[in-house]
Simulated scan of single mutants.
Amino acid sequence: MPPRTSATSVLLGVIGAAHGLKGEVRVRSFTDDPESLGAYGPLHDAEGNRYTVRSARLQKTVVVVRFEEVRDRSAAERLNGRELFVDRSALPEEEDEDDFYQSDLVGLSVVTVGGQAVGTLIGFHDFGAGEIAEIQPEKGPSVLIPFSQAAVPEIDIKRGVIVVEPFAAGLESSDPADDDAPEPGTGADEEASGSGGEPT
């Protein structure tokens, strides 16, 4: 569930376009079961407005939702882009100590497998090709990395650290070992071809 919120709320979905004439909307749901968007009680937006799910049905990659508080298409159209949150206290507790909500990770320090500081994790995004983590370095613009096992091999919430593999994360474009390789015509190449004297 990609959150972009406080420690007391978790982002469960984002409202998209209106659907039909009766106030239904398309919602991109971040719950494990997309149709369970209303299973944890009423939702709210960043402004504190309340949304009670009356019905939810899966349609391709989104959920078509009817909210108790939205009665016509005009009202539905005004909600396009609205983020939907639920109080964290309404969510089930993690069964395993290694389980977490992504909201637990926002604000943690990010380091490479070699211990080099990268920055602070500030959020998650999903543009349709997999979850992306956004990291804010100490200086400069934020960077996006894939939130995958290869790119993020270790998460230690107790220590407050997220470990990334820089090559898999796209933070480094080439293996540092390549920098030590001799350039063509120098070093090992010259040794292999001799010192330039007459062949014996």
Score class of each variant (00 low, 15 high):
A168Q: 12
F67G: 03
Y51E: 06
L79T: 02
T5L: 09
G140P: 02
E154N: 09
L79P: 01
L12M: 13
A39D: 13
N80F: 07
T31W: 05
P146H: 07
T31Y: 05
P34K: 10
R54H: 08
R54G: 00
G81C: 08
A129R: 14
S193F: 14
I132W: 08
A188W: 11
V25N: 03
P42N: 08
V86K: 03
A18G: 06
T31V: 14
G114L: 10
D180K: 10
A56N: 03
P137I: 05
D180E: 14
A129D: 15
S74L: 10
P166F: 05
S89E: 15
E183D: 12
G128C: 05
G16T: 06
D32L: 13
S55K: 10
T5H: 10
I145S: 01
F147I: 01
F167R: 15
F100L: 13
S6T: 15
A17Q: 14
E191L: 14
Q116K: 12
A90D: 08
D72S: 11
P146N: 08
R50T: 15
G115E: 04
S36E: 15
G196F: 06
I15F: 04
Y40E: 07
L84Y: 02
R4C: 04
S89P: 01
E198H: 10
P137T: 06
L43Y: 04
E131W: 06
E95K: 15
H44L: 08
V14L: 05
G128F: 04
V70S: 00
P199D: 12
R50I: 14
P34A: 09
L12P: 00
D72L: 04
V110Q: 03
A129Q: 12
K22A: 12
F100K: 07
L21Q: 13
D126H: 11
F100C: 09
S36R: 13
L58M: 12
I145H: 03
V70F: 03
E134G: 01
G114Q: 12
R82M: 08
V161F: 03
P2N: 11
L144R: 13
R78K: 12
L144V: 06
K60M: 09
R28M: 09
E172Q: 13
D156F: 02
V27D: 03
D32E: 13
E134I: 13
K139M: 09
Q149P: 00
E94M: 15
I157M: 09
H125L: 12
L84W: 02
R73Q: 14
Y40D: 10
E83H: 10
E95F: 06
L21E: 15
N80W: 05
Y40P: 00
Y40M: 07
S173G: 10
D179N: 11
P3C: 05
K22L: 12
T200C: 07
G197A: 14
G115Q: 05
A169I: 02
E35S: 13
E35T: 15
G48E: 07
G187S: 09
T52Y: 07
E35Q: 13
A151E: 03
A17T: 11
L79R: 00
G160P: 07
G130H: 06
A181F: 11
K60C: 03
S74C: 02
R78T: 11
V10P: 00
